[in-house]
């Protein structure tokens, strides 16, 4: 599960109580927070994300420097968002040029993220500015919590 924090915020605690694994993941993240900074999480998967949220939507941002707009592919199926990117390697003329230092990475990256709500794919907006991808994912209207009014007899 990718967003234990998000899950626990959206769902009440008793939904998670019976799932030991989820608890473990949640605890490990809480420990990480204590040791590092408040929100830091380490990801072995790339691209890495920052997630912002409120009751009605989530915003995912990702740093993708050097990637062309055409090489970013975003797909949404129900509550899962998949981001595919391809960073092209700078091509050098082998006869006249050579590398002196290489620190930047390139190549294909694919990552899927499961959100704790159904995403309205038609209202999803994505921007790519200064090498930062920002995706705004609104929660589906029918998925939002409904307030039920109680009438007294």
């Amino acid at each position: 599960m990718l967003f234990p924090e998000l899950q626990t915020r959206f769902f009440s605690n008793d939904l998670l109580q019976n799932d030991g694994l989820k608890e473990m993941q949640y605890l490990s993240n809480r420990l990480n927070r204590l040791v590092n900074s408040e929100y830091s999480n380490y990801s072995f998967e790339h691209p890495t994300f920052n997630v912002y949220s409120n009751q009605d939507s989530a915003i995912i941002t990702s740093e993708l420097p050097g990637i062309e707009l055409d090489d970013i592919d975003i797909q949404i199926v129900h509550n899962t968002i998949t981001i595919k990117t391809n960073k092209m390697e700078e091509k050098l003329d082998a006869e006249t040029s050579h590398w002196l230092k290489r620190e930047r990475t390139y190549g294909q990256m694919v990552r899927s993220v499961e959100l704790p709500f159904e995403v309205d794919a038609n209202k999803t907006k994505a921007k790519f500015n200064r090498g930062i991808l920002t995706i705004e994912l609104p929660r589906k209207e029918e998925d939002k919590p409904k307030k039920i009014s109680i009438k007294a007899n």
Partner: peptide, 22 residues
């Protein structure tokens, strides 16, 4: 920032990843 450096016939080229900077 992560940097790549390469040398061509008449120049040195530095590429630096600086996302979010304009």
């Amino acid at each position: 920032p992560r940097c790549d450096i390469y040398e061509t016939k008449d120049a040195l080229i530095v590429l630096a990843d600086m996302p979010g900077v304009d």
